[in-house]
Design a protein around this nucleic acid. Structure first.
Lengths: 238, 238
DNA sequence: CATGCCTGACTGACCAGTCAGTCAGGTTTT
DNA sequence: AAAACCTGACTGACTGGTCAGTCAGGCATG
């Protein structure tokens, strides 16, 4: 039915691989909305208009669907990060990009982030390990970047492991506490305040100079593309 | 069977109220361990050595048990905080106490914190509101304390709402990411680094003086009770 | 014997996972 | 080119099992 009209942006060729992706996509949506245990395999198969039995051609069992869904979610933002990890711009720019990506990702996939916190424990221990290793990988990347800033004299020495998790948690907080924050902040203002809390205070004089220079450059370079660099946070009225 | 031998430390008089507490305690433990959907009502009743039907004398249905369990968990640390909110010592000391309580609570009730993140969505919308209101109350308390610090000139102005959630999330992070942090940090070293990230950088000169004075006083006052005030974080080897 | 705490067998709904069977498309044979 | 044959993706009725919630009856106490 709707098989041929939505391919084209997919790089995966194999038709079987496409089905797999399709199932995972539906699973992420449904698990996010209703939770793992309140979603039946039939819900998933109905969502993509196939029979129940077909799911079991592609996945061992329901738990296997969950594992794939969670991995897909987690890898979603790991990729975005590591792509630009040792980017051409300096380590401070990279750090900012990490914060920005983390928030943007949490903004667009709020439900998926929540799903990860909700359902990781429903996996078997070995699968849980797998999911955690992905997150550790993300943390490691951030640590490297922080280390780079510190040894370049741009940032004061600090515990990079804990700071890395603070960086990760900034985006997660935006997703997990959206019910308390969304009314009062835009994602941009939240991110700006995040930088003010997790980046600015730890820069050395040199680091601050670098940051200012980057801001200036970006301002001139981008011209009028965006009015002003985020400066004031949108504090809530009440 | 095991009905009479474990009462006595309970201050609640009504025998019915005691049963309720007993059920909630068992529910918190079991839900934490296995999750809401993988815990049966019979599991709970067996855990306290009563029949299944009895649970329904005290709770409308299984969901009602979950609500009570979650509220019990959340109220656990709200109380501890607000007790000392407008404490006799200054607002900075209070702020530190909030961080310390948050971490200590997360340390002792790791599973319960995780439970809250896992299962709040399994409540009905109205009940969910209830749980969130409790957390908003906690945030409000912290905001007040931050405001007090700022208007006393001890802390530089910042967005107190977001900072309040950073404070809450510090403890939650200790619980949620314990699998990555517990090997490398003691709760004390984590807390110390937390202060270094979320308190110290935002103090004014006056604030830092105040903090130093408090540390000194506590050091002399407590004598040799504890060797040194936390100074170096225990960064991990690998 | 009456009151009320308590029990656990029972019911009905629900669902993961299975499997015999269908059918559209391709390949070989005539 | 037509007929016979094959393949494997796909279906959905079915099974076996689980569990929330009920209720008739048990037991203890006053």
């Amino acid at each position: 039915m709707a098989r041929d009209d939505e391919i084209g942006d997919q790089e995966q060729s194999s038709i079987a691989e496409q089905r797999r992706e399709q199932i995972i996509a539906a699973a992420v949506t449904l698990f996010s909305e209703r939770g793992y245990f309140q979603t039946t395999i039939e819900d998933i198969s109905n969502a993509i208009g196939v029979g129940k039995g077909l799911i079991y051609r592609y996945f061992k069992d329901k738990n296997d669907v969950l594992l794939s869904a969670l991995c897909s979610v987690l890898r979603g933002n790991q990729q975005e990060n590591s792509m630009q990890q040792l980017s051409t711009s300096g380590p401070i720019a990279t750090l900012r990009k990490i914060l920005a990506n983390s928030c943007a990702m949490a903004h667009e996939n709020t439900e998926a982030v929540i799903l990860a916190y909700r359902s990781t424990k429903d996996l078997m221990p070995k699968q849980r390990r797998q999911v955690k290793d992905i997150e550790l990988g993300i943390a490691r990347d951030i640590e490297l970047c922080l280390d780079a800033c510190i040894s370049a004299g741009l940032m004061r020495p600090l515990d990079v492991r804990i700071m890395a998790f603070q960086y990760i948690m900034l985006g997660h907080t935006w997703a997990l506490k959206h019910w308390a924050l969304r009314n009062n902040y835009s994602m941009e203002s939240f991110l700006a305040e995040g930088e003010r809390l997790l980046l600015l205070p730890f820069l050395t004089a040199a680091g601050r100079r670098k940051l200012a220079a980057e801001n200036k450059k970006r301002q001139t370079l981008a011209g009028e593309k965006k009015a002003a660099p985020p400066k004031q946070s949108g504090r809530a009225p009440r």
